[in-house]
């Protein structure tokens, strides 16, 4: 099992569900998908670009520092655009990696997708930020 990525929604929020192993080999695929969601929109390429994203890591079997780097990149990108990123993870072995690196203090990590929506309640994609794609970086 390598990496499988699927997009869905929970309470109107876009969720990227990750299954398998995120490592130095598969991380570029995750990075591409995150960029596509942030720049263009959901998995079918439909706008609007996602600003409030949930990444569900419940079915991730392995996560290394390359994967952490991609998640950090996604978080910083979304924050710069006024968005949010919430991670869903309840597996001790994966949570441990965030704890060791101190990144548990930087990410919002919740145990379920439902809790992810509650964690960032003010954020709603449906209100659509600016209509234009983020052509200018603030």
């Amino acid at each position: 099992m390598e990496l499988s990525l699927q997009t869905g929604t929970v309470a109107g929020r876009t969720v990227l569900r990750v299954t398998g192993e995120i490592d130095v080999y598969t991380a570029p695929e995750l990075r591409q998908r995150l960029l596509a969601l942030i720049e263009r929109g959901d998995g079918d390429g439909a706008p609007p670009p996602v600003r409030h994203l949930v990444i569900d890591l419940s079915k991730v079997e392995f996560l290394d520092s390359t994967g952490l780097g991609v998640l950090v990149g996604g978080l910083k990108r979304l924050r710069a655009l006024g968005g949010t990123l919430v991670l869903v993870c309840a597996q001790a072995r994966i949570l441990k990696i965030f704890q060791i690196t101190g990144l548990d203090g930087i990410f919002t990590i919740v145990p379920t997708e439902e809790a992810a929506v509650a964690a960032e309640p003010a954020a709603e994609d449906s209100t659509g930020d600016q209509s234009a794609p983020p052509a200018t970086d603030r």
Binding site: L35, I38, G69, G73, G74, K76, R77, A80, D137
Partner: peptide
């Protein structure tokens, strides 16, 4: 790094 390039 991040402002120039969105991912680290």
């Amino acid at each position: 790094i991040v402002t120039a390039e969105p991912f680290p």
